[in-house]
Design a binder for these strands. Structure first.
Length: 825
RNA sequence: GCCCCCAUAGCCCAAUCGGCAGAGGCAGCCGACUUAAAAUCGGCCCAGUCCGGGUUCGAGCCCCGGUGGGGGCACCA
């Protein structure tokens, strides 16, 4: 039975609407950067590009929905918007999958990318697809390698042997940033230490600038991200102090933040696993030391991190000399001193440091206080401020000084003696970037027996990965699988032509993602990494949206890259991301979604059931963007019903497109214009959930107007419904597009124009003034918004005369035009 | 252990400058439509803002002290 569906009976068919508009949008390709009106201001909307782990999940759906609100809003406001998408497509899961099923990481990766790309297109995000990139494309990693060489030329990429973090599960080394609580950030395995020669980026050279430039981000980045970065960089001011060592020509330098306590240094500690410990130990003490070192090496980082464990250590049989009082103090090896922080050796002041005190107690060492503790102090180490005591020699007397002054005084003394100097120490370590894995950008260096490290000539980049698959990807003896590809490894030295070998490590995937936002600007350029003109026009990105899990790793590295490129003169800004928005997590029933809990919510199923728009709307409406969303508390069905109500409004509009709203219903017009103005303010402050609420309100108001006499022919109704469609287009683009068509417009609403607010419609004709007596509301008055304070007071007092009768009016607070509070005595 | 954020109706959340606690949604209840149900539409109920102090004419908002939840740091000398 076929029947014609009349406009009023038309049904809102989610699936049909999606199927209808997706191909139309693809043909229109409406969101290409550079297509705004000439002279339009440029805006760069950036979202953290996905790793192709499988299909999209709820987390992606949330970021993309939030991110797209701003990108689409910017288009409607007439900006020229750059909103690119790509894939962070190098990385371990591809390789592990390939080993499991005997295939090629490339096939797994690119198949997943296609799956995700199709899902993203269906999801209706306003990406500029012409800028799509994948970090695993040779055309991309060619420039990652090129950048590596630029860093190398500047001495910012170097190789050194050191104890490094090793993940026994992933069979590769890790950067410090990738070790969380002694465990591999990726897979959770307990990380061990290995002495290996590895490549590093000299991020420590930029520690101070990375810290200082956060000042300019403090209003536009989440405070907690800045705090985390500050903690990670870990700047501390102090001094280097030299201690003479008996039986050794060279003194040993220690770092301390408390040089004022030097007179209280009663022993000396060297990190047990530092080379210095093995050097200093006497023959007599060596057996004990070796045994202890063995014990320390066996302990995992997790055990070491437990702060309440006993302070262990062994005496090395040797003494140092305290430079201020000439005392011989014993040198110990212990594991509470870290080999790779400061100089790996400390002066121990048990009277002023809890850890040193604990060690002194455990090994029966003397304790001297150098700051007078308060009378009621009953602890061992006093770390607070106070008056310096026990700190004088023939040349200097710190006694009586406060801590800060004592620091300055002793530093001057140490400097004059040439045994100490003020210094700043950072917790941040250099970025270990090499990985013993296959699926990454090969490090473009050739090792020649006679020439040493030789960069691959730039005209020979990229160094393309060989085709390995299945078992060929397995490591042997902790070496990269690339070492197995002998044809690939053995090459002539570019310098001398002799037999040489390629470096077989690949780069940390965080190198790939440290500059992708620059590549988006000229992704097809095969002559340079990025186009400087384009970068000047678009960067820094106006808004970056992504998860807080990258608070340190990706964001710190990208900031570092940006500063290095600025130093090279390739870009003219210091920070890559002007503003940062961290969306919350999508959880379920109070817990993170996980396979083991079986509480995962399938995005595809949700979309099948409720449609793209309802899912997007639900995620945006759930709450403030940075809050977690508990899917169990959400009702996509409610979102769908709302979209349906909104959509139906379009069928009630009977005026022609372009109808002049000027003579339309004034109340409805006011509601429309106030809603638009509020939306503008709310969008600026990222309160997208409230924008949705305001849109719902306008839908309700419009519905009532239509049904209660204003009628569908009133041009104010058209104005209201068009505003609804435009507001909705930020969140529910399919529904909005369909409404737009029913309203008689051409696609696409995504490139339509944001309504112009008529300021005269924002003014209120009258407002309700509240009259309080002693803070309690006793009367309400309808008054003009520009009523004078005197008039309002007069009217108010008259209105509440009954309440003040017999009582003296002591004070009247007037806040025209909204409130009067009468204080009676 | 130290630092930061949060707490508003059964639930998710609003509330410009310190000025009427409620905008929106979910759930619930009643009604209309229906043979009935679903869907839809209309209406209604619901907290005095985690607890205890303080400042103020006036506090959800500011200050102090707790409780509960979330996050960060944690042998970095």
């Amino acid at each position: 039975m076929s029947s014609e569906t009349s406009e009023t009976e038309a049904t809102y068919d989610v699936v049909a609407i999606q199927e209808r508009w997706r191909p139309v949008w693809e043909d229109l390709d409406a969101f290409r950067a550079g297509t705004a009106a000439p002279g339009a201001e440029k805006r760069y909307a950036l979202t953290m590009f996905p790793y192709p782990s499988g299909d999209l999940h709820m987390g992606h759906a949330e970021v993309f929905a939030l991110h797209d609100v701003l990108a689409r809003y910017w288009w409607l406001r007439g900006y020229d918007v750059l909103n690119p998408i790509g894939w962070d497509s190098f990385g371990l899961p591809a390789e592990n999958a390939a080993i499991r099923n005997g295939s090629n990481p490339k096939d797994w990766t690119y198949a997943n990318i296609e799956t995700q790309a199709a899902s993203i297109r269906r999801y209706g995000v306003s990406f500029d697809w012409s800028r799509r990139l994948h970090t695993s494309d040779p055309e991309y990693y060619r420039w990652t390698q090129w950048l590596f060489q630029k860093f190398y030329e500047r001495g910012l990429a170097y190789r050194k042997a050191s104890p490094v973090n090793w993940c026994p599960n992933d069979q590769t080394v890790l950067a410090n940033e990738q070790v969380v609580g002694g465990m591999c950030e990726r897979c959770g395995a307990v990380v061990t230490k290995r002495e290996l020669t590895q490549w590093f980026f000299k991020v420590t050279d930029y520690a101070q600038r990375l810290l200082d430039d956060m000042e300019g981000l403090k209003d536009t980045w989440p405070e907690r991200v800045l705090t985390m970065q500050r903690n990670w960089i870990g700047r501390s001011e102090g001094a280097h102090v030299e201690f003479a060592i008996e039986g050794r020509d060279e003194p040993v330098t220690v770092f301390t933040t408390r040089p004022d306590t030097l007179f209280g240094a009663t022993f000396f500690v060297v990190a047990a696993d530092a080379a210095l410990a093995a050097e200093l130990v006497t023959a007599e003490q060596r057996p004990q030391f070796e045994a202890y070192l063995e014990e320390v090496r066996r302990a995992s980082d997790i055990e070491r991190l437990a702060s309440d464990r006993p302070k262990t250590g062994v005496f090395l049989g040797r003494h140092a000399v305290n430079p201020v009082n000439g005392e011989r103090i014993g040198i110990w090896a212990a594991d509470y001193v870290l080999a790779d922080y400061g100089t790996g050796a400390i002066m121990a002041v048990p009277g002023g440091d809890e850890r040193d005190f604990a060690f002194a107690q455990a090994h029966d060492l003397p304790v001297v206080h150098t700051v007078q503790p308060p009378a009621d102090f009953d602890g061992g180490a006093y770390t607070g401020d106070g008056v310096t005591i026990n700190s004088a020699n023939d040349e200097i007397d710190l006694n009586g000084l406060d801590v800060e002054t004592a620091k300055q005084r002793v530093l001057g003394y140490l400097e004059s003696k040439g045994v100490g100097t003020g210094t700043i120490n950072f917790r941040l370590r250099d970025w270990l970037l090499s990985r013993q894995r296959f699926w990454g950008a090969p490090i473009p260096i050739i090792h020649c027996p006679s020439c040493g490290e030789v960069p691959v000539p730039q005209d020979q980049l990229p160094v393309v990965l060989p085709d390995l698959e299945g078992d060929e990807l397995k490591q042997q003896g902790g070496r990269s699988p690339l070492a197995n590809a002998t044809d690939w490894v053995n090459v002539p030295c570019p310098r001398c032509g002799g037999d040489a070998q390629r470096d077989t490590d690949t780069m940390d995937t965080f190198v790939d993602s440290s500059w992708y936002f620059l590549r988006y600007i000229s992704p097809q350029d095969d002559t340079q990494a990025f186009d400087p003109e384009g970068v000047r026009a678009w960067m820094p990105a106006n808004q970056y949206v992504g998860g807080v899990e990258h608070a340190i790793l990706h964001l710190l590295y990208s900031r570092f890259f940006t500063k290095v490129l600025a130093d090279m003169g390739m870009i003219d800004f210091q920070e890559p991301f002007t503003a940062l928005l961290n969306q919350g997590q999508v959880i379920n029933q109070g817990k993170a979604m996980s396979k083991s809990l079986g509480n995962g919510v399938d995005l595809g199923k949700m979309i099948d059931e409720f449609g793209v728009d309802a899912v997007r709307l639900t995620l945006v409406f759930a709450g403030p963007p940075e809050d977690d969303i508990d899917w169990a508390d959400m009702s996509p069905g409610g979102s769908l019903r709302f979209l349906q109500r909104a959509w139906r409004l379009a069928g009630d509009v009977t005026s022609a497109p372009g109808a002049d709203a000027a003579d339309g219903d004034r109340d409805l017009r006011q509601a429309t214009h106030r809603t638009v103005r509020q939306a503008e303010e709310l969008l600026e402050s990222h309160r997208f959930n409230v924008v949705v609420a305001r849109t719902m309100e306008l839908v309700n108001t419009t519905r009532k107007a239509i049904d209660s006499g204003v009628g569908g022919a009133d041009p104010a109704v058209r104005e209201a419904v068009e505003a609804v469609a435009l507001l909705l287009s930020l969140v529910a683009p399919y529904t909005a597009e369909d409404m737009w068509e029913r309203l008689g417009h051409e696609p696409t609403i995504g490139r339509a124009t944001w309504p112009t607010v008529d300021e005269s419609l924002l003014a209120q004709e009258s407002v309700t003034a509240v009259v309080q007596v002693m803070g309690k509301v006793r009367a309400r008055l309808e008054v003009s918004p520009d009523i004078s304070e005197a008039d309002l007071q007069e009217q108010a007092l008259a209105a509440i005369a009954a309440h003040t009768e017999g009582r003296a009016v002591r004070r009247v607070i007037v806040r025209a035009p909204s409130l009067v509070n009468v204080v009676v005595g």
